[in-house]
Design a protein around this nucleic acid. Structure first.
Lengths: 165, 165
RNA sequence: CGACACCCAGUGUC
DNA sequence: GACACTGGGTGTCG
């Protein structure tokens, strides 16, 4: 239960239970300082050719944008016809895609204190990708650096991606 | 300039420029593991009878407590009427006695994330010792294991002290 | 105020 | 390569 999030509003068309599990992570060396360099990693499984280690593009090299970009990459690079669970250590990323995002779609992406929600571009993009699927996408929170193999691998990919600038 | 810290708020009463230089270091074999044994070393100069190599007392045998204890020993065992520079490789120890300590004296020893500052007993003790002097106490950071003779000697004394339990 | 991340720095070790 | 001891900060939300 704990740490498990699911997007609703879909029907399962098929019935073949090929549930996909993907681990995502973001990194930003020097986060918050000028000259920060971010990267993201996506881990599908050992020796899986879809595994990804990439530098973040764009001028805002923050940890949060890296986390969101990793999620969007997983959304785009997975079978859209089979259920997917994205395992992330970012509560911010998960909630932006689920509970917070649901509210923001209704209030015009306004923060509880009235400001504009940051990183809207990436959040809207991810939520569009989820909405365009006909099978469920779930999110599961995994504590960082807790010995979880998938998270550890995604972390390495993300850190490495940040060095590729 | 770099790595040089000074405590303010004093007047030089005398004028005899007998500036003292002392090297301090702490060690803790098995730091962080149960059964760790810590020690500290203070080096005043070759063949100086004040040179010290001692095991750390108390139940918390950490590297940080050893570093702070070495500094406090130097403060207590030096001429309080002549300027003193303490050379340490511990940024933690130096900043606890200077810039961080200044803030903590005003905020009740609260960490930037709200928690209680660790090793307060030793930090308050050292800052009291400094405040009770009528001549300046300065701190200088020396990189560890960099071939600095004073630091190397203090390191040996500290390591040896840890073995005296 | 709380939460989850992302760091930066210096030590101490195994 | 790994871990522990400690502090400072930003990214973002409720």
């Amino acid at each position: 239960m704990t740490g498990y999030y699911r997007n609703g509003g879909y029907r399962n068309g098929g019935g073949r239970n090929n549930h996909q599990h993907v681990y995502t992570d973001g990194a930003s060396s020097g986060n918050g300082r000028s000259g920060a360099r971010a990267g993201y990693g996506v881990y599908y499984g050992d020796n899986d050719s879809r595994n990804t280690s990439m530098p973040l593009s764009g001028s805002r090299q923050t940890n949060q944008r890296a986390e969101l970009t990793a999620v969007n990459h997983a959304l785009r690079n997975s079978d859209p016809n089979q259920p997917l669970t994205i395992h992330s250590d970012s509560s911010y990323g998960i909630k932006s895609m689920t509970e917070w995002g649901n509210r923001w779609d209704q209030n015009g992406y306004r923060t509880s204190s009235g400001g504009a929600v940051a990183n809207q571009d990436l959040i809207r993009e991810g939520r569009d990708l989820i909405a365009s699927r006909n099978v469920p996408v779930s999110f599961s929170h995994v504590p960082s650096h807790s010995g979880n193999h998938g998270n550890d691998m995604a972390d390495r990919f993300a850190t490495n991606g940040a060095k590729m600038h």
